[in-house]
Amino acid sequence: MQTDLFSISKIFTERLLRIPDYQRGYAWTEKQLKDYWNDLCQLEMGKNHYIGVLTLEDVPESVIESWAEDHWIIKNKNFAPFYVVDGQQRLTTTIIFIQAITEVIGKDKKAICNLRLDHEIFYKIA
């Protein structure tokens, strides 16, 4: 079992992540989003935020064969396919959060300095 700490960018480096069908759908509410946001706001400059455990499981070869649209990245680019079996709520929130930030920054480069919990970013997530 690999127990290394990775940055968000490293998690997505040469990996194709899928959430298996048996996992529950996205269920975070405003409470979890506020907790997440408060954790980020309290982060000291130069420090990293530990988002929690992410448990990945190898995808069986028989399943990979049915992912025809992904063969190019798995076979040609050597991306390793994994199921996310724990941590999918945190991972999904982080991805949505990053996307929302890029959309806000795209409109106003100074906006990142003024983000608040009631900012439109969180309406996009919630």
Rank of each mutant, 00 (worst) to 15 (best):
M1E: 13
M1N: 14
Q2P: 06
F6R: 05
F6M: 10
F6I: 02
R15Y: 00
P20N: 05
R24W: 15
G25D: 15
G25L: 12
W28I: 03
E30S: 07
E30I: 11
K34Y: 14
W37R: 14
L40H: 09
Q42N: 13
E44H: 10
G46K: 02
G46R: 02
K47Q: 14
K47H: 08
V53W: 08
L54S: 03
L54W: 01
L56V: 00
D58I: 04
V59F: 09
E65G: 00
S66T: 14
W67H: 04
A68C: 11
A68S: 13
E69C: 04
E69M: 08
D70N: 11
H71L: 11
I74L: 04
N76R: 02
N76V: 01
K77L: 13
F79L: 09
F79W: 10
A80N: 07
F82C: 08
F82G: 00
V84Y: 10
G87C: 05
G87Y: 08
R90I: 12
T92Q: 04
I96M: 15
F97N: 04
I98H: 12
Q99C: 02
I101K: 11
I105V: 14
K107L: 13
D108E: 13
K110A: 10
A111G: 05
A111M: 05
H119G: 00
I121M: 08
F122V: 05
F122L: 05
